[in-house]
Amino acid sequence: MKIFFLLIASLFFSAVAYAHGISEADKQAMIDGGNLRYIWLGATHMLSGYDHLLFLFGVVFFLTTTKDIIKFVTIFTIGHSITLIFATFMGINANYYLIDAVIAISVIYKAFDNNKGFGNYLGVKSPNLLVMVLLFGLIHGFGLSTRLQQLPLGEQNWDMLLRIISFNVGVELGQIIALIFMLVVLTQWRKRKSFLRLSKVTNHALMFAGFMLLLMQLHGYLHTTNEEEFGFNKDAHQHIHMDMEAKQKEYIYDSL
């Protein structure tokens, strides 16, 4: 059990350390590999983007018809494609921790909505879901754009646009792969009695995960804006988390 918790802690600190960075090796691979590399990075980034996937999971959680799934996934895709392409091409940027904090809020929002929180707790009608999914899609795309802008996109507008579109294509491919897995799991789970019994608990867990992500992003934001107050800069802070992760791994290996 101790080893299990250490593994979870290791994953958490790893996410903190690497959530906003593009390694130099990845940057060089992008230069050498061309547009196909951007497609690959877009796909892998989506498949490892726990915040995007948690929101998508919340969106499709209660959707049972193909028509509804296509409608909501399409509107989410349109939203994040618009801001991903436009913000990257125009060089519009913002503090990535704040953007990701809003993405974490989107996870909390969708889980809260799934549990009929607006009616049960606030006594109001929930906002139009299609509009909210589009709005959060725009924000998710802006978050993806902050990552893409860390990569070498070239100086020529045409080359830059092709690389941005390639990355976006990869994101959509990764989303399709993740969506298929989610739908298979949900379809099988809905056949069991436990689905109705545990669906509310699952969405509470989704809210908790979103809340933890929100705290993590606000924690990162404070370190980027108040480096002197914390006594070390964000690079030193990242190295501290990496050192902690290394020590945890060393302890795990020793325990085994």
Rank of each mutant, 00 (worst) to 15 (best):
M1H: 14
K2F: 04
K2N: 12
L6D: 15
L7Q: 13
I8Q: 13
S10N: 08
L11K: 02
A15H: 15
Y18H: 14
Y18Q: 06
Y18L: 12
E24Y: 11
E24H: 10
Q28F: 09
A29F: 03
A29V: 06
D32M: 02
N35Y: 14
L36K: 11
I39L: 13
T44S: 14
T44N: 13
H45Y: 10
M46N: 13
G49Y: 09
D51Y: 04
D51Q: 03
H52V: 07
L56Y: 11
V59C: 08
L63T: 08
T65H: 12
T65S: 14
T65A: 09
T66V: 14
K67M: 07
I69C: 08
I70V: 14
F72C: 12
F76C: 07
F76N: 05
G79W: 01
H80T: 02
I82L: 08
L84C: 09
L84W: 01
I85T: 03
F86V: 04
F86D: 00
F86G: 00
A87I: 02
M90L: 14
M90D: 01
G91K: 00
G91D: 02
N93Q: 10
A94M: 03
Y96P: 00
D100N: 12
A104Q: 04
I105A: 13
I105C: 09
I105P: 07
S106E: 06
V107S: 12
A111H: 06
A111P: 00
A111R: 08
F112V: 05
D113P: 03
N114I: 12
F118G: 15
N120P: 08
Y121Q: 11
L129V: 05
V133L: 11
L134F: 04
L134M: 01
L135N: 00
F136R: 00
G141D: 02
F142C: 00
L144N: 01
L148G: 01
Q150R: 14
L151Y: 06
L153G: 00
L153W: 02
G154H: 03
Q156T: 13
M160P: 01
M160S: 08
L161D: 02
L161G: 03
I164Y: 03
S166Q: 09
F167H: 00
E172V: 11
E172I: 05
G174N: 01
Q175R: 01
F181S: 15
V185P: 06
W189A: 01
K193N: 06
S194F: 02
F195C: 10
L196Q: 12
S199K: 15
T202D: 12
T202Q: 11
N203T: 11
N203G: 06
N203C: 09
A205T: 04
L206G: 14
F208E: 04
G210N: 09
G210S: 07
L214V: 00
M216G: 08
M216K: 06
L218Q: 05
T225C: 07
N226K: 13
F230M: 11
G231P: 05
F232M: 12
D235L: 07
A236K: 15
H237G: 05
Q238N: 13
Q238R: 09
M242D: 13
E250V: 10
Y253S: 10
Y253F: 06
